[in-house]
Computed example of a mutant assay.
Amino acid sequence: MDGFTCIDQASALDADAIAALVNQAYRPEGHTHGWTHEAALVSGLRISPAQVRALFRAGSSILVMRGKQGLLACVHIEQAGLACYIGMLATLPSSQNQGLGKTMLQAAEVLATQQYGAHVLKMLVLSSRPELQAYYERRGYALTGHCEPYPLYAGVGVPQREDLIVMEMSKPV
């Protein structure tokens, strides 16, 4: 692992690096492997630098873990009333399975409660990712029963399966 130096709030200057990290973690090209990627389920970019830049607004924060060679991990937190959505949790594939994702998720939960006063944490998970759902369940999240079709309108890729849905998970704080 490229020993991390700090976790801090990102700025719009980090947008290109965040987009590259998220796309590498979720939709890698070639033979990059990682347990978090969904390239077989969704094609296209997960996020563009412009979409990342749009996340820098009131009620929205991105945390990044910086290492000697650049960004190792990131996570997005967005306030929604008394809840906060946590998403875009990504770890550099070469640094996965070392606890960085768990560390970033914990940091996001702390920020959500301390900065935004969240009473509940929410996230969205693809239906065809049972290992990801299990990962979040081990951290206290549970399915809410709320499901939506894959968000084609959001510009986050094209599903390769017609039955792909997005499921909501939540955790009280």
Rank of each mutant, 00 (worst) to 15 (best):
M169A: 06
A39F: 03
A134V: 03
K102P: 01
P130H: 10
C74K: 03
L92I: 00
C147P: 00
S11R: 05
E137T: 14
A19C: 09
E78F: 01
H119D: 10
Y85Q: 08
M123L: 15
T32L: 08
W35G: 10
T5M: 09
A107N: 02
I47T: 14
G157A: 10
S127E: 06
L55I: 02
K122D: 01
N23C: 12
G70Y: 01
A19I: 05
A142K: 12
R46A: 15
G157T: 07
D2S: 08
Y150K: 10
G99I: 09
Q106G: 14
A142Y: 02
K171N: 05
C6T: 06
P49H: 05
R27C: 15
M104Y: 01
R57V: 12
G101C: 04
A19H: 08
R27V: 12
F56P: 13
R53L: 07
L164K: 09
E168P: 00
A19F: 05
F56K: 07
A73K: 00
K122A: 10
M167H: 00
R66V: 01
Y135R: 02
S95H: 14
G140L: 09
Y26A: 12
H119K: 13
Q69Y: 06
A15G: 13
V22E: 13
K68V: 10
H76T: 11
P28S: 11
L132F: 01
W35H: 13
Q51I: 06
A40W: 03
M88T: 11
R46S: 14
L72R: 01
V75A: 15
A134S: 10
A19V: 07
I47F: 09
M123I: 10
F4E: 01
G70F: 02
G157H: 07
P149L: 14
R129D: 01
I77N: 05
L111C: 11
I18G: 07
H33L: 15
